[in-house]
Design a protein around this nucleic acid. Structure first.
Lengths: 231, 231
DNA sequence: CGCATGGTTGAGAGGTCTCAAGAAAGGTGG
DNA sequence: CCACCTTTCTTGAGACCTCTCAACCATGCG
């Protein structure tokens, strides 16, 4: 029984995320849960087939939206973390040539088709989540268009840390980054090799610590100076 | 009176755009028009202050959404053309650090605040327009992340021609591109100089003709080969 | 005619890429 | 627990793409 609270907390990451955007009441949660169904686990690398799948929430693990070009080049559009919904907003609706990929073992909970904005509060929560998604997408676009490799990496690390902290998956300034550098490269529009060199450089500069897939942001002001893109 | 039909057609570019996404009936148009108000004209370079403005439709001219970094670098997020709405979808809702800029003399028609999805057909039309916007945004992101300068330019020219053709602003394979190369650079994540060189190269390759702000796509298959990003 | 703006071109620097090989880490079967 | 194999990370070297700086040309306008 010791693990029960943790399990519940984990399985309700989506509740926590939605509550960030609107003050949900117990009845809202109950109503929402009533529309949720089976849980599935997918292996890393699995294509969840955005076009054919029902809406879902990520319970645990990392996923991404990706677009592949003919010649094998790939661009990752967005990272999806525990608590994120898929199929509720425009970005995660089926789009041509976009695939939804599991980056780690992925636990998802499917919802019944149709909107889950069952009342005004839930509606605002989903709208808020969609707006946040959209803001991140624009931030990603700016990264790719106008930032250097060093800036892109710093900016992405800050974003991921912030998102993970929100769902309780960061430990202080540290977090688990369970993706290959190749994935970071495909997200950042860089080559694998250059991502590696950039990480080395940030390590030498004392901005981060990196051992295995464990990252620590050693110098947050420095990282923000490097990566922040605000006007 | 000879110019009247043309004027009406122009002023209703937004109707044409919406009809692309749902079969609107006359009553829908009437209802929509009932919610539209004053027309204003803004000078090129004008910041329309996304955060403070009412929703609006572009009647004529070009605008863009842009994000400026501290040091002056700028990334254009999206081009907005005649018929495009602003403030109806997530992308064109106020977002931090994003500004709405007139790129040419810009004629806009303001709408009353609140949703214009007055019935199910209009709702689908607006949703369709938002989805198209979103798809373009993702395409733009892939351009910036994984395409070369040459590919980016080709892809953007094809996109713009397609959009202009939809609203009757293309003449065959030609169209008017009323923006400085600096603007293209800020959209494509390139330097002004490199955009110029790339255009020269495409001209030498016989893909495009470019005189003044007049562009002709001389070799559409060639352009698509160069710029198309489909998997 | 002269100025301002935007386009064009050259030259060299710098950032990022590709190719390639070696080191580290992780998993698996003996 | 070790040996091996695979995967991932790391590093080097050189090529290539794109950038910056700078100058010059073309156009339009007062």
């Amino acid at each position: 029984m010791l693990s029960a609270p943790a399990t519940i907390a984990t399985e309700r990451a989506y509740v926590r995320r939605l509550k960030h955007h609107a003050p949900l009441q117990d009845e809202d949660i109950v109503a929402l849960e009533g529309r949720l169904g089976r849980v599935e686990i997918h292996a890393p690398g699995k294509d969840l087939e955005l076009a054919k799948t029902q809406p879902l929430f990520l319970i645990s693990g990392w996923a991404c939206l990706a677009h592949s070009l003919r010649d094998g080049r790939r661009q990752i559009i967005a990272f999806l973390l525990a608590g994120d919904g898929v199929g509720f907003d425009l970005l995660t609706r089926p789009q041509p040539h976009i695939e939804l990929l599991a980056l780690t073992p992925l636990k998802v909970r499917y919802a019944q088709p149709g909107s889950l904005a069952l009342n005004e509060r839930l509606g605002r929560a989903f709208a808020g989540a969609a707006a946040e998604q959209q803001t991140r997408l624009v931030g990603h676009l700016v990264r790719l268009g106008r930032q250097t490799a060093y800036e892109r990496v710093a900016h992405l690390l800050l974003e991921l840390h912030g998102r993970l902290a929100e769902i309780g998956e960061a430990r202080g300034e540290g977090f688990h980054l369970p993706v290959k550098q190749e994935v970071l490269a495909d997200a950042l529009g860089l080559s694998l090799v250059h991502v590696n060199r950039t990480l080395q450089q940030m390590r030498r500069d004392g901005l981060i610590d990196l051992r295995g897939s464990q990252v620590s942001l050693l110098d947050r002001p420095g990282l923000e100076l490097a990566g922040d893109q605000r006007a």
